[in-house]
Write a protein that binds this DNA or RNA. Structure first.
Length: 421
RNA sequence: GGAGAGGUCGCAUAGUGGUCUAGUGCGCCUGUCUUGAAAACAGGUAGGGCCUCACGGUCCUCGUGGGUUCGACUCCCACCCUCUCCGCCA
């Protein structure tokens, strides 16, 4: 979340930012509620102070009667405050993070500037299939039975693809740990307070998050949740920073409201496995840390020889907690482009610098060597999202004879170099 | 899941309705002493909100949330976590 004091003191900037980011939150309303809240708080505290001094020592009968009235008054005001406080919290959580000055202001989500492109899209001397057609032909996924057992947008991985899941995890872990990241396997569920502190909205309308009935737990949509919550309510020492983590988890998404979006095969699913990088750094280091994470993502996909490009999210496409976000988009020969032809770029990784937005929400600080305490900066980035990477491999490395070759960097984890039947 | 014990200021402990605005020890910081250090002695040692230019004031937090009471670390209820034993289980 943002600092309410900052919002109060920079109203125009916040309003402008909120508009640029197409966030659905009324700043004037927030400020009004905030004022109301502080007014009530002041009254309550004055009354409490009165009661505290009166009740210090044993009061007389008349005094008790008087204090009781004060108590009743406090209770009434507290009841008035409660809904105000709730509304205030709700509104404050909806205010998006500040935006990096280099981010392009746009109201078009598909307007993300292309930073660079690595490898040209692969040219085929035959009509390439999409991953669904190919995978079913080669008995690598089973969507029909997944629909029977779990519903639409679930899948079984079979044969070589099932094994590839683990090879990709190992490949990503090997590269990322080489850069000094500590490996983790995390819980797949987390508490509402953690989700909210990180800027996610687990219980709102059209949420992307599955909630567990009769509990305050949600299925995580990314290990960003569990690794971001890892140091909740902690004060880290300056010398232990940066903390660099890489975590394997399952990710669950309801995909509410995504009916019109591309969802062939396993492109858009309710569950997938992902290896995620997460960092806690000093404020002055977050910009460089963000670049480093992006470079690791590039290293991973360059290693796989998958064509990709890097895009820089516009204000319209930034998530609530992000200050700046870069995506890698891989070339997917089977995905139809806007003109309906086969072959398009598709998001395969995403890395965000959330600066102090999440650390404020979760109360994560660091103590500098001279004893000062300050909020840390928090960043996340995909090392590898298995499902979409499988799509990229299957589609890009398909051969005319219907087989699929496996990128060389993965060979050491596998007993096969080609998928054929 | 059942039975029992417990969760207090960085750590360890005391506190069973009103000098607890939480004591003591350790640790840490400052000072005295010392060439320096140690020891000894003295003092200081949480976080957050609100008001204030500031000095400062005030409120909240003893696992969490409710309740009883003029007043709750202390009493009642629910929940969470840890430990021991039993049961179940990959």
């Amino acid at each position: 979340m943002l600092d309410i004091r900052y919002i109060r003191e920079n109203v125009e900037e916040i309003k402008n930012n909120t508009k640029n980011r197409k966030a659905d939150v009324d700043i004037d309303e927030l400020l009004k509620i905030d004022e109301e809240r502080r007014g009530l708080l002041q009254k309550i505290e004055d009354l409490r102070a009165k009661r505290n001094t009166s009740s210090k020592t044993k009061p007389s009968t008349e005094e008790i009667e008087e204090i009781r009235k004060v108590g009743d008054e406090i209770k009434t005001l507290e009841e008035t405050l409660r809904p105000v406080e709730e509304k205030y919290q709700k509104l404050l959580l909806k205010v998006p993070n500040l935006t990096h000055p280099e981010v392009k202001v746009s109201d078009d989500e598909d307007d993300n500037p292309i930073v660079e492109t690595h490898l040209e899209p692969i040219k085929f001397d035959f009509e390439p299939l999409d991953h669904e057609e190919l995978s079913i032909k080669l008995d690598l996924i089973d969507l029909a039975r997944a629909a029977k057992v779990s519903g639409a947008k679930f899948y079984y991985l079979k044969n070589e693809l099932a094994v590839l899941e683990f090879a990709l995890i190992q490949y990503a872990l090997e590269i990322v740990t080489k850069h000094g990241f500590t490996p983790f396997v995390t819980p797949d569920l987390a508490k509402t307070e953690v989700l909210e502190g990180l800027g996610f909205n687990p219980r709102g309308e059209s949420t992307q998050i599955y909630n567990i009935e009769n509990s305050d737990l949600s299925l995580i949509g990314t290990a960003e949740i569990t690794m971001g919550g890892y140091h909740k309510d902690e004060t880290l020492k300056e010398k232990e920073l940066p903390k660099k983590y890489v975590a394997v988890s399952h990710c669950f998404r309801t995909e509410a409201g995504s009916y019109s979006k591309y969802s062939k095969g396993i492109f858009r699913v309710h569950q997938f496995t992902k290896v995620e990088m997460f960092e806690y750094v000093k404020p002055e280091e977050s910009e460089n840390a963000h670049k480093e994470i992006l470079n690791i993502e590039k290293e991973i996909f360059s290693g796989l020889t998958i064509p990709y490009r890097v895009v820089d999210h516009t204000t319209a496409d930034l998530g609530t907690p992000a200050y700046r976000t870069f995506d890698l988009e891989a070339w997917m020969p089977g995905k139809p482009n806007k003109e309906g032809e086969r072959g398009d770029w598709a998001e395969i990784t995403s890395t965000s610098n959330c600066i102090d937005y999440q650390s404020r929400g979760l109360n994560i600080k660091f103590e500098s060597n001279d004893g000062k305490k300050e909020l840390v900066h928090m960043l996340n980035g995909t090392a590898i999202a298995i499902g979409r990477t499988l799509i990229a491999i299957v589609e890009n490395f398909q051969k005319k004879d219907g087989t699929i070759s496996i990128p060389e960097v993965l060979h050491k984890y596998l007993s096969f170099k080609i998928i054929s039947r």
